[in-house]
Amino acid sequence: MYREWAPDPVLADRLVCVWTRVTASGGTGLVVPDGCVDLVWGPRGPHVAGPDTGPMPVAMSPGDRYTGIRFRPGAVGEALGVPVEALRDLRVPLTDLGGLPGLDAEAVSAAIAAAGTAGDGDVRDVRGVLGAVQESLAVRLRATPGPDPAAPVVAEALRTGRSVGEVARDLGLSERQLHRRCVRAFGYGPKTLQRVVRFQRAVRLARRGAGLAEVALASGYADQSHMSNEVRRLAGVPLRQLVSRP
């Protein structure tokens, strides 16, 4: 079971959603790149899931609960105490990052675990816990430098298939300057960002039932073969297999 909700309106410019997932069966799940950074409470404790550049396997047991807060791509800034590039392709315990002001991470873990014993009615309790986490996060966000305001513009321009050079020129930057700003905002350079946003568009279209050739064209790939190769590099499985997963 996976559920997500809109974040506190005060944080809507920085967060995509808050979410919870309870695994129905054991095995290995795959987390694929989406440009986001998540603050997660899971079986192995509270941690930060950095921006990924490839598939990240996660060992799951039946009944495991994962609960988290998802930052928008490019919107983390310095809220977690380290540059976002230092989190790339990593899962870092929240304690290693100094935690969040006024928040007892272990108490949050206990509250989430307690909510998880209440059956389907626990959703309200989980949302309440996440509300407290968002309040603490808001304090940190006010006290740290914000994200690059150009980040959403850069991501959208690259998603539409424009070259790195064209995007840099439109922003009045050199390609080197654009690369530095992308690394600071997203954790990786513009070419990787373009691969990720193009991949995510392909996933969305495929989930709506579009044919693979149509998906490739609409997502900015040279052809269907190009898309297939890129999807395997980023997700580890073919596109149809990826979107068929619950």
Rank of each mutant, 00 (worst) to 15 (best):
G187S: 05
E156W: 04
A157D: 12
R169M: 01
A157C: 06
G189Y: 04
R195D: 15
A150C: 04
P190F: 01
T160W: 06
A155P: 03
F186T: 03
L193K: 03
G161M: 06
A168S: 13
T192L: 12
T160H: 11
V154I: 15
A151W: 05
L171K: 04
R184V: 10
E166G: 00
L173A: 14
G165L: 00
G187Y: 05
A168Y: 02
A151Q: 04
A185H: 11
E175C: 08
T192W: 06
T192M: 14
L171H: 11
L171V: 10
S163C: 00
D170M: 10
A150M: 11
G187K: 02
R184L: 13
T160N: 06
Q177C: 01
P152T: 06
K191R: 14
G187C: 02
R159P: 00
R180G: 03
E175Q: 14
S174V: 07
R159K: 12
G172R: 02
G189E: 07
R159L: 14
R162D: 09
R195F: 00
R180P: 02
R169P: 00
E166P: 00
A150N: 09
A168I: 08
L173R: 12
R180F: 15
R169Y: 04
A151K: 03
C182F: 10
E166D: 12
T192K: 12
A168E: 08
Q194A: 15
L178T: 08
K191Q: 10
S163R: 08
D170N: 08
G161C: 08
A151V: 08
R159T: 05
A150F: 01
A185K: 09
V167F: 09
F186A: 02
F186H: 09
G165S: 14
L173Y: 03
A168K: 09
Q194T: 03
T192H: 07
P152M: 02
G187F: 06
L173I: 08
L193C: 07
R180E: 14
A168P: 12
G161W: 10
K191D: 11
A151M: 08
H179M: 03
P190T: 02
L173D: 10
G189W: 07
L178C: 05
T160C: 12
G187N: 06
E175G: 05
R184W: 10
A150I: 01
H179D: 15
E156F: 08
G172V: 09
L178W: 02
S163Y: 00
V183K: 09
V153L: 11
E166Q: 13
P152C: 05
A185Y: 10
R169E: 15
K191G: 04
R159H: 10
V167E: 07
V164K: 04
L171R: 06
G189P: 10
V153R: 13
T192D: 05
Q177V: 13
V167A: 08
T160L: 14
R181W: 12
A151Y: 07
R184I: 02
